[in-house]
């Protein structure tokens, strides 16, 4: 699907269910060694008020996809080669930097993986939150600080009135991630992109942050696109799941469907590699890992990209790449099986 055909498509009414529709997105990076096809034909849809999880192992292109929605990838070396990103019926891809700035934070907020480095160490958290709301909503300095304190209270940071004047290094990792969430939500966006928001945190804190995200979603009614590599996180938070592998979507389904009936061998492998305390105690099954590694995105193999690691591989898999097709209502998979 090329960019021009998707743009020609009739624009759905703004009141429609779909908030974000990524179709046929290809993002490539020029490097010394050649073109890296980090994202190579991705379709993801997010409805209003819905939580969609994008899962896949490191290097599958999920972070690049998330960053591309806000055009936060460095261009060059990155380039959106094809595809469209429709947000409320408007395509983000051809937008000017000024139009993008009006969308960032105001319409789409983002939370990154590393809370320790995502905040500027030389400003207080209050300054950093206030900066956002002052820019987008033109609030006075005082009002912006009050909003900052309100946001800190919202994400359950104790004594927010005092904490707004603290610097990031005075917060723990989990608390900093709360600050990041507060900042991303400060302008009341319609979509929150959370890029592995719990990966860098302690296990106990991870659960708290996920809980906070769910709570925020319920209170503020925004949609969430949660990027993660942990199937456990998916099961807890998502309504719908998109599984990515080597720059492509290999499976998409509702969370119940996916866990009950995974179609793609890669998804099956991911689900089997979830540690199961309940099983480990009784049976002596080994934790299963998927053998092999992700193929090079410099010149990806012809045919199915998972073929080299797939236990069901056939001649047909190596010959041509299987398209993403609807196997059951609302359940798509890119596998010939």
């Amino acid at each position: 699907m090329s960019a021009s055909t998707t743009q020609a498509r009739p624009v759905p009414a703004a009141v429609g269910q779909r908030l974000l529709e990524i179709s046929g997105l290809k993002v490539h990076f020029r490097t010394d060694d050649g073109m890296v096809r980090a994202v190579d034909g991705v379709d993801i849809g997010v409805d209003r008020g819905e939580t969609v999880c994008v899962v896949g192992e490191s290097g599958c292109g999920k972070t690049v996809t998330a960053m591309t929605v806000l055009k936060l990838i460095a261009m060059p070396p990155g380039k959106i080669v094809a595809g469209s990103i429709m947000f409320e019926g408007r395509d983000i891809v051809p937008m000017s930097p000024a139009q993008m700035r009006a969308i960032r934070s105001k319409q789409i907020g983002i939370v990154f993986q590393e809370p320790m480095t995502s905040l500027n160490p030389v400003y207080t958290v209050g300054q950093q939150i206030a900066e956002t709301v002052r820019h987008h909503e033109g609030l006075s300095k005082k009002a912006a600080y009050e909003r900052a304190a309100d946001m800190l209270r919202l994400v359950n940071i104790p004594s927010p009135q005092r904490r707004v004047h603290d610097y990031p290094h005075q917060f723990s990792g989990g608390m900093r991630q709360r600050v990041m969430i507060a900042m991303a939500l400060s302008c009341n966006p319609k979509l929150l992109i959370a890029d592995e928001p719990t990966t860098a945190l302690d296990v106990t804190i991870q659960a708290q942050i996920l809980e906070l995200l769910t709570e925020m979603k319920e209170r503020l009614g925004m949609a969430v696109m949660l990027i993660t590599h942990a199937m456990g996180v998916v099961a807890e938070t998502a309504q719908r799941v998109v599984v990515m592998y080597a720059g492509k979507v290999v499976e998409e389904a509702t969370v119940e469907d996916l866990f009950a009936n995974p179609r793609h061998p890669y998804t099956q492998g991911l689900i089997r590699s979830i540690p199961r305390i309940d099983l480990a105690a009784t049976t002596h099954t080994r934790l299963e890992a998927i053998p092999g590694t992700v193929p090079s995105l410099l010149n990806p193999p012809k045919g199915c990209r998972f073929a080299a690691r797939c236990r069901y591989v056939t001649e047909a898999c190596l010959a041509a790449e299987p398209p993403l097709v609807e196997k059951a209502p609302g359940h798509k998979a890119a596998c010939i099986l």
């Binding site: 993008m100 105001k106 956002t132 900042m183 991303a184």
Partner: peptide, 15 residues
């Protein structure tokens, strides 16, 4: 190239 600069861009601030 630090993360907080990406954060600042993600806030929609002018370059």
């Amino acid at each position: 190239r630090l993360d907080h600069v990406t954060t600042a861009r993600a806030k929609g601030l002018p370059e």
